[in-house]
Each structure stands twice: as structure tokens, then as C-alpha cells.
Design a binder for these strands. Structure first.
Lengths: 190, 190
DNA sequence: CTTGTCTATGCAACGAGTTGCATAGCAGGA
DNA sequence: TCCTGCTATGCAACTCGTTGCATAGACAAG
């Protein structure tokens, strides 16, 4: 149920349309939450009919009207209430780990390419995160001093950076293990 | 759709009932995947009717019969096929990060307790992972040398350990930031 | 001129995951 | 004695998330 709250946070940071929100979820919000435009439109519609959001319809030429949402009083109050409720620590879901463990019943070496592909995706994501950090928080064009909201955005981004670095290092460990098993052990054929 | 595959991996490692699988998902499989008994029973039923699993009914006294599942030929073949298909790198879902960023619109200091609670949960999980590593892989009672399956289980567990260590360190960073904002900045009231 | 991409919204169907409840005997502690 | 918890399975109702599709004009590249 945190998608609602992620949307509220994003709209408090800056009002916007469903389409704009979807693009933010590909960028900065995407550091810690993903959502497709479908989910976003559905949840926005529900929140609007629950009176959690204010809407302003902006007519446009040659394209559908833009509906700009903002988090009005009730939405902001709902967010504040949620912030004071305890939540459960995350549970893990890691498909690649399922594959790694499953490789015992196939050829471990055949997974090497897949692991390398994932590692490259994480390297790319790390590069994007570092570029964003430089642009928004630590580079010469960044505002100084940062306000509280920016400090909090920065510490969340540092979490994403740490996550990617850790994952890249772990996948090195996985690759070393797969290479070692490929040399010493034939595929399991039990 | 990876729950099916996680179940297949677990059943290949050792056949068992739905109930036993549910408990494995609280332990070793839980390093990288969680599932409740409801999900497991439902998926087991579907896989059984699809002929992916072999079932053996074991009568018991004073409790319902146990249905012991094992991954027969078709199930194993399906797993092998999935292992050779590429999958998408994980997308992140981190409720606590939503809260941290939302704290800009509330009192940052009021989140400190919640973050500390999460950090403690991660410390506990790290302790469980380290105890499991000692028991199964690096301690005096562990088998030596490890076979390929055990090596792969170990590298997955090392991933969990690295994840928990990274998270604990990041939450230190978050706490430092929240304390700093609590001292210097009043809650946003815009 | 056609193909593709971007803006902007939305429906429909499906599968995945959560929560509450139900059955039912057996064992152990307050 | 009562209450809690363990083994063992399962139904029902719900929300969340994904995928495919549809509309429709603007604009750029080939």
C-alpha cells in the first residue's frame, strides 16, 4: 500500500500529472520504488475519488487535457499518519538468487553470462545514481546549503548507491564461485 | 512467477510437504524469497495438477495426511528451461525510503525510533545469517569439502550477509542525517 | 510517405500476494 | 483447567502488479 504514499510524497515535492509522475518513477522516485503508468493512473483515480487529492484540469491543444494533481490537506494528513505508523522491515525477493541456487541442478557455468549481464545492469544503474548525485547534491551546480528535503533525498540516494556497489561486489563473488565450479565440477546429472 | 521455481529448487534439494516448504521459506530459502503457506499450497496444487510434481500421501495418526511432493522429470525440465531464459534485474521496493523522503513534510526527528527499529531487525537477521553460515558452511560441524550445491547455497547466503551489513551501515547514515536535521532545522510547516 | 516516438489518458484481464478464517488432535505451561 | 502453540491443510475475498490494447494529434527521421 506504499504506492499511495510514494505518490503523495512526490506530489508534495511538486504537483504534476499522472504522466509526469510516471516519468518521475523512472527517475528519482525509482531509486526506491517502481510503478508503471497503469498503476499510477488507477491509484490517482482512487485517491481523487476518496478526496485525498486536488485536481486541476489544464486544457491543451492537440492532445488530451492534462490533469494536474496536488496533495491537498487530507492527502497530506494521511501521509503524516502513515509516517507515524510502524512498518515491517522489507522481505527479500531475488530471482537471480533462485537461479544461482537452481544452477546446482543444471550447468553452473551456463549461468555466467546471465550473471555478467545483471552485473552490467547494476553498473549502469550505479553510474546513473552517481551522475544524479553530482547534478543534484555534490556538484558545482547543486544548491548549497541543501534544505531538509534535499538532505533526505540525498541520504536515500546514498542508500541506492550503496546497494548497487554491494550488489556489484557480490556478483563478482558469484562469478568467482561459478568459474571455480566450472573448472572443478562437472554439471550435476543425478 | 519465480515462486514456482523457488519451490522446484527446494524440492530438488529435498522433497517435502507444503508445511515443510513453508518452514524452509522462513529459513534458508527465506534468504532470498518469502512466501506464506497459502501461496505455497496454492502453487503446489497448481503444479501438481499440471503434472510438474510427484506426490506421495503419507498417512499419519491424529493429524491430516501429509502430502510429500518431489520434483519429477517435467518439473525439473521446466526449471532447467527457466534457468536458460534471461530475467530482468530486480527493481527496488523500499517502504522505509518512502518514509524517509516523506519526513521532509513532517518532523524528521520523529522517524528516528522507526529507523532504529528497522536497524535492529536487520542486525537480528544478520546474526541469524552468520549463525547459519557457521553451522552449514564454515564451522567445525560443516561438511568439507562442500559440493557444488552447497557452494552455491553459500554464495547466496554471503549475498544476504552483504545485504544486511550494507543496510545496517546505511541506516547509520540515515540516523546521522536525521539527528543533524533535528538539531538545525525545525519541522517543515509550509 | 511512412514509420517511429512523444505526450496523455485509460480499459480489461489476469496472475501474484495478503489477510482472515476454519478444521482438528496433541502437548506443555500457568 | 484453560490457553497457547504446533502440525497440516485448505477456502474466500480482497488488493497489488503486470501485460496487452486503444485513442489521437504532433513532430522528426528516413
Amino acid at each position: 500500500m506504499a504506492l499511495e504514499h510514494a505518490i503523495l510524497v512526490s506530489l508534495l515535492e511538486k504537483p504534476g500529472s499522472g504522466y509526469e509522475l510516471a516519468r518521475r518513477f523512472e527517475r528519482s522516485i525509482g531509486y526506491f520504488w517502481t510503478a508503471t503508468h497503469q498503476q499510477i493512473y488507477r491509484v490517482l483515480g482512487r485517491m481523487e475519488s476518496d478526496g485525498m487529492l486536488a485536481v486541476r484540469t489544464i486544457p491543451q491543444q492537440g492532445r488530451p487535457d492534462k490533469k494536474e494533481y496536488s496533495a491537498a490537506g487530507p492527502g497530506r494528513a494521511a501521509l503524516a499518519q502513515w509516517l507515524h505508523e510502524p512498518i515491517e522491515p522489507e522481505s527479500l525477493r531475488h530471482d537471480l538468487a533462485v537461479k544461482i541456487r537452481g544452477a546446482a541442478f543444471d550447468d553452473p557455468a551456463s549461468l555466467i553470462r546471465e550473471v555478467e549481464r545483471h552485473q552490467q545492469a547494476h553498473r549502469d544503474r550505479l553510474a546513473r545514481f552517481l551522475a544524479g548525485e553530482l547534478r543534484d547534491f555534490t556538484g558545482p551546480d547543486a544548491p548549497a546549503p541543501l534544505d531538509a528535503g534535499q538532505e533526505l533525498q540525498h541520504v536515500v540516494l546514498r542508500g541506492g548507491i550503496a546497494q548497487e556497489r554491494m550488489t556489484i561486489a557480490w556478483l563478482d563473488d558469484v562469478l568467482t564461485t561459478l568459474h571455480r565450479l566450472g573448472r572443478s565440477a562437472p554439471p550435476a546429472t543425478d
